[in-house]
């Protein structure tokens, strides 16, 4: 079972996000980048499958601040190789990134599965895993929460629909899957293990080939979202705010 997992660095939305003076990007000075949450689930699913069936996991990530730490973390979690794609910034074009990756990925094949998060929080333009599947002419399914390998190049794959209903699909391998959630929460890795990986393992670098595809969706500006309304804020000490809230609940007949 050979698996390629794609990781993308995105801003940690727990932090404050500030728009840069150009009005079209985020102020990099204040950004803390982390692996896109769905991609972290894709990595976990890949490692779980490897633990179950053997094989190797290759983690591939485009160059970005803090990507080395993310790739060493992937190695510490159980990836066998970590690859950094250098020399391109896709900005907001998920489509351009997917097309460049599609050119490079064949060197890491054959693989039974290519996994990526089913969506990233900055995907203005397209979905990475689906475009990759199209470019590589492989079958695709997104919103995946479970992968069971069957005999002879087939897998039973579960994806989420709505209202807690899921769908079970049978797929031929190799395939590209957009992962929504791994079967278990992404494992925690102590910093010491990541440091150990930094000492003993290496990140391979591969340069991107060719110019990125022209973006079909142009980002004109970024701003804090305008909201039609806003909550009435209850202020004061915790006890005061709690008191005001209780008053409202009584008034509304909830208490």
């Amino acid at each position: 079972m050979n698996i390629v997992v794609l990781l993308k660095m995105v801003p940690d939305v727990v932090e404050e996000l500030e728009v840069a003076p150009d009005g079209k990007s985020l102020n990099a000075e204040f950004l803390r980048l982390i692996v896109n949450e769905r991609d972290a689930h894709a990595l976990e699913e890949a490692v779980l499958l490897k633990e179950r069936h053997g094989g190797a996991v290759v983690a591939v990530a485009p160059e970005a601040p803090e990507v080395d730490e993310a790739l060493f973390t992937a190695l510490a979690k159980g990836a066998d190789r970590a690859v950094k794609i250098t020399g391109f910034t896709s900005d907001f074009s998920t489509r351009a990134a997917a097309k460049l990756l599609a050119q490079l990925l064949p060197r890491f094949l054959p693989a039974d599965l290519l996994l990526a998060g089913c969506q990233a929080i900055d995907d203005v333009d397209g979905q990475l895993a689906a475009i990759l599947a199209h470019e590589l002419q492989l079958p695709y399914l997104g919103l995946v929460t479970q992968v069971k390998l069957e005999a002879a190049g087939r897998a039973t794959v579960t994806k989420e629909f709505a209202g807690g209903v899921r769908g079970e699909f049978e797929m031929t391998l190799p395939a590209v899957l957009g992962i929504q959630a791994a079967e278990k929460p992404p494992r925690y890795i102590p910093v010491a293990k990541v440091r150990a990986a930094m000492k003993t393992q290496k990140i391979e670098t591969v340069p991107a080939a060719g110019a990125p595809a022209a973006a079909l969706v142009e980002v004109l500006q970024l701003a804090k979202p305008e909201a039609a309304g806003h909550a009435e804020m209850l202020t004061g000490s915790p006890a005061e705010a709690a008191g005001k809230l209780c008053g409202i609940l009584l008034e509304r007949g909830v208490l």
Binding site: L17, V19, I121, V124, L220
Partner: peptide, 17 residues
């Protein structure tokens, strides 16, 4: 008007094709 980053930032995006 696209809500990015978990709804924290709004992008205005133009499409001509």
């Amino acid at each position: 008007r696209c809500l990015l980053y978990g709804g924290k930032v709004e992008a205005t995006a133009a499409v001509s094709a």
